[in-house]
């Protein structure tokens, strides 16, 4: 796994408090009990800190899955393949 992909995955694991080997790629907002609105804001903060970016409100409201989160950080200039 590439370092930036690892960073994103780690942000999910830390914010949602799930096991390190959890299948975060399948997670959706409110699809698991750990990913509620409070955890969502922690996740946003974690992703912003991990990549030193600032997300828009539209990103915050639209980040409803790991896959979408991946797309959003790429749009903010993160090379997820690096």
């Amino acid at each position: 796994m590439m370092p930036n992909e690892r960073k994103l995955r780690d942000a999910f694991i830390a914010a949602l408090g799930v096991a390190p080997d959890a299948a975060v790629e399948t997670f959706t907002y409110r699809g698991i009990k750990e990913w509620d609105s409070v955890a969502h804001m922690q996740l946003i903060a974690g992703i912003e800190a991990a990549f030193d970016i600032m997300l828009d409100t539209a990103d915050v409201l639209g980040m409803s899955s790991y896959a979408i989160a991946r797309t959003i950080v790429v749009r903010h200039g993160v090379d997820i393949e690096a």
């Binding site: 804001m41 946003i44 903060a45 912003e48 800190a49 600032m54 997300l55 409100t57 915050v60």
Partner: peptide, 10 residues
Amino acid sequence: LQAAARLMTR
């Protein structure tokens, strides 16, 4: 307030 809070809470 919302936008500022985002920068401050981090």
